[in-house]
Design a protein around this nucleic acid. Structure first.
Lengths: 258, 258
DNA sequence: GAGTGGTCTAGACCACACT
DNA sequence: GTGTGGTCTAGACCACTCC
């Protein structure tokens, strides 16, 4: 594809084009579609700005603006002197990008331990189906796990329940999950080619139910923070539903408003 | 000040300057300091890019990059064909910028009604003093209010408790608050020259206490979402502490993760 | 038409990383 | 040294707003 040609069409048309978009946005869209197609893997470098500019027959400044926006949106990571890389959840820098839970005292946040409770294939009900864009009865992987404070005695902090579309996560098993070191989203990237690019969360306060209370070590009826997360991959496609119950006596959910 | 001269010094020094910062960041800092000094009021236009470029003896592109970042950080608002304006909380577009509470069903969010419960001058205790950077015993304004669903019967949704440094909010009274239409932060801008620039929130689930439960129309011990907000003005200076208790049966706290 | 921000270009030079 | 991203410039032209 030649982005410049498209730009030419744009300006050539007499009436104000209804779908006008500047050249750098066309290039941004092109790069996004290549990322979506998996042309470069997470952590890999994309071609340099000068090379992209030469190939697309535009100036380096135009490529730069496109890449700037993609970096801003966490699709790419720029590293001066080295190149521009596809963002990944498997790196120190961006690990737990989506985790907003923080210990009250300290900011550095000693990481939490994981304990897998369950991982099985299920058929989805109406609610999960709607959220993930599936049909009722479609296959899904359901995971339940605990996050606990490190050390002894380990205190449970989070009870997560996760649903993933079965079609995308074919070989996912309890064993794979248990043996994986690092963030779960890193596993999704490397084993299933699913990259989370953004997520929406809805928070509520709820009372602990009879099922959850013992797992979290609280009394039935104790207040818990319910965090419902819907994660999206490229193209606004939802690929993970997560329902977390957080104990917030020693931890809090941190948010920055700008 | 001549930004260019500073840039000259920077490059002239033989050793790598420890405080190196690119020209556009110096200009950004300059503009920020002028905003902080109140040179232009919220909603007013700042000088055009060409004018700033001429005055500062830099190219328009450099000014543009500085303004771009300030717009990104919500200090300025660009309007094509009109100019660049100082951001304000008093506008339709940015009203309730910091309010993340949403009704479950609908996205458009019918706005909530306010009922002022209390507004009085107090001396701050240790906790509030620390948060606001005051000394124990310093003066503060304490506000308590309810947010309720519109219509009849009105359902209480939020119980807010707010502390403001007394020195900054000298003439603030229950009357002023009650008569004000529009967002509270708009009142702070126009009457007290205090502009909220960013905020940090900490969320927890708590049980309704004996004091709050009747005000919110819930049973004692019912789960509530506790939202503690610390708002900052220019220069990382904290100027508001807010402690909100949210009922989340029909509403939720919405957050976007990127 | 005049003035504003928005896009695009081409070229120079700087800062950083690898080799 | 070579190649990468980062900064800065100067100038052209486009899109939008208001008069």
């Amino acid at each position: 594809m030649n982005a410049r040609a498209e730009a030419g069409e744009r300006s050539a048309n007499a009436p104000p084009a209804p779908t006008f978009s500047p050249l750098y946005r066309q290039i941004k869209a092109l790069l996004l579609s290549r990322l979506q197609a998996g042309e470069w893997r997470p952590g890999e470098a994309i071609p340099s700005e000068v090379e992209l500019a030469a190939r697309l027959k535009v100036s380096q400044g135009t490529v730069r603006k496109a890449v700037d926006e993609l970096a801003q949106e966490n699709h790419l990571v720029r590293r001066q002197g080295k190149g521009t890389f596809v963002a990944t959840h498997a790196e120190e820098r961006t690990q737990y990008r989506f985790l907003r839970l923080m210990p009250d005292d300290d900011g550095a946040a000693g990481r939490l331990w994981r304990r897998l409770l369950e991982c099985r294939r299920v058929r989805v009900g109406a609610e999960v189906a709607r959220a993930l864009g599936l049909r009722v009865g479609d296959a899904a992987v359901q995971i339940r796990r605990l996050l606990l404070t490190p050390g002894e005695p380990a205190q449970p902090v989070v009870l997560d329940e996760i649903w993933l579309p079965g079609a995308l996560f074919k070989g996912l098993s309890a064993e794979k999950l248990a043996n994986w070191r690092g963030p779960m989203y890193g596993l999704f990237e490397s084993e299933f080619d699913v990259r989370m690019v953004r997520a929406e969360e809805r928070l509520r306060a709820v009372a602990a139910g009879a099922d959850e209370a013992p797992l979290l070590g609280v009394a039935e009826g104790a207040p818990l923070l319910l965090v419902e997360r819907l994660s999206y991959t490229y193209g606004q496609r939802p690929v993970e539903l997560r329902r977390g119950l957080y104990r917030t006596e020693q931890f809090h959910y941190r948010n920055e408003l700008t």
